[in-house]
Simulated assay, not measured.
Amino acid sequence: MRNPLDPAELNAAMENVHRAGMPGLFAEIRDGDQVWRGAAGVADVATGRRVTADMRHRVGSITKTFTAAAVLRQIESGQIGLDVPIGRYLPQLVPGERGDAITVRMLINHTSGLAEYLPYAYPSLKAFPALADTGPQSLDDNRLTRFHPTELIEMGVSAPAVGAPGGTPGVYSNTNYLLLGELLEKVTGTAAERCITRNVIERAGLRDTELPAGPYVNGPHSQIYEAWFGMIDPPRDYSVYDMSWVGPAASLISTVTDLNRFFGMLLAGEIVSPSSLAQMQRTVPVISQEGRTIDYGLGLHPMEVPGRGTFWGHGGTVWGAGALAMTSADGKRQLAVAVNLQRWNRLDPSGRPRPHPIDDALAGLYRVAMC
């Protein structure tokens, strides 16, 4: 009988990504009780230090699934209403008619119509993420900047709306999840990071996952390299970076093992109730930050895999780091992959990313990992 986790095949797929230009990557793949962990490449291009599969890593917007789960647990306890207007909880942050029209659900599934604050916090990025008139200067200017979430929220709320509340397709916006962080603090009386840690991270028994306020990654980790579409050449290390610019939207640190444990428990109904999980899996069309239309639920999105059906999970990027975690609907097959280079594609004259060998190599790895 064929091994569902062929080590030679998985190692070859990982090495292909490294040879295509990724400095380092690591992964954990699960199939039932079988587990494979692997790594390829380097954690530090200057010293040649190797990556290992147990490294802690910034996982970007995978944080949103944790934040959504924390909100749903408060909904289950009656502290928050899923379809209650956000203005009832945070009238000073989303005032007037918009506060009355935008519900908690619309924040979680990105149909609020609230704009992304990022181009306003990082002026040189302008029309983030992929227009030719952007530049990387703001990344260095804000390396150790401490933002207050309400400062960023005000930027997003005061910017021109990107849609009507509840309209589809929605538009992916970190403003929504910073508001959810403020909502958690309002109803629990504790910082959002502490609420998410207590109600989600600790509930799942995750030993190497944390929602940090500071700029450092504790424990064994890789350097992380940002290329900003070829405008930073060679790519620059951003492993030390104050993560208050994304907070409960994208600042989580985790490991591939913890990510698989979390998503396995979530899809088994062990983090939120089965009825809450069903709400998380109700999707609407949303335009991603890359300009693609995706199906998006409450902090989860599906991926159809030929021969294996539907996988659920989330991906994420921050400056220099990326990750993807997906679990099959039946919970049997799981993938968690972390990479230490971002925005490797150069841009064409219209501002669109050009194809890069890393793209095909990653797609090949995902096929092997999920099929």
Rank of each mutant, 00 (worst) to 15 (best):
R2V: 13
R2F: 11
N11L: 04
N11C: 01
M14Y: 13
V17G: 10
P23H: 10
L25N: 08
F26I: 05
A27E: 02
I29P: 04
R30C: 10
D31K: 02
Q34A: 13
Q34G: 07
V35K: 13
A40K: 01
A43H: 02
A46F: 05
G48E: 00
V51A: 00
A53W: 11
D54V: 03
M55L: 11
H57T: 09
G60W: 01
I62R: 00
I62W: 00
L72Q: 04
Q74N: 09
S77F: 04
G78Q: 10
I86N: 03
I86H: 06
G87D: 12
G87P: 11
L90G: 07
G96Q: 06
G99F: 12
G99A: 13
A115S: 15
Y117I: 05
L118H: 00
Y120W: 09
L131H: 10
D141V: 08
R143W: 02
L144E: 13
L144Y: 14
L144S: 12
L144N: 11
P149T: 02
T150W: 04
E151W: 06
V157L: 03
A159K: 06
P160K: 07
P160E: 06
P165I: 07
G167H: 10
G170H: 08
N176D: 05
L178D: 00
L179Q: 03
E182A: 10
E182P: 01
L183D: 11
L184I: 12
T188I: 12
A192V: 03
E193C: 05
R198Y: 12
I201E: 10
L206P: 09
D208M: 10
T209R: 01
T209Y: 03
G214H: 13
G214Y: 07
Y216W: 15
V217N: 04
N218T: 15
H221Y: 04
Q223D: 15
Y225L: 12
Y225K: 13
G230L: 08
G230K: 07
G230F: 06
D237V: 02
V240H: 09
S254F: 01
D258F: 01
D258Q: 01
L259Y: 00
M265I: 00
L266G: 03
L266R: 06
L267Q: 06
L267A: 05
S275V: 05
M280H: 03
T283Y: 09
T283C: 13
P285D: 05
Q289A: 09
E290N: 08
T293Q: 15
T293H: 08
D295A: 12
Y296D: 07
L298H: 04
L298E: 04
L300I: 05
L300V: 02
G307M: 06
T310K: 05
W312L: 03
T317A: 07
W319S: 15
W319V: 14
G320T: 13
M326C: 10
A329V: 10
G331A: 11
K332N: 11
A338C: 15
Q342V: 14
N345R: 13
P349D: 12
S350G: 13
G351I: 11
P353M: 11
P357Q: 02
I358H: 00
L362Y: 06
A363P: 00
G364F: 00
Y366R: 08
V368Y: 02
A369W: 09
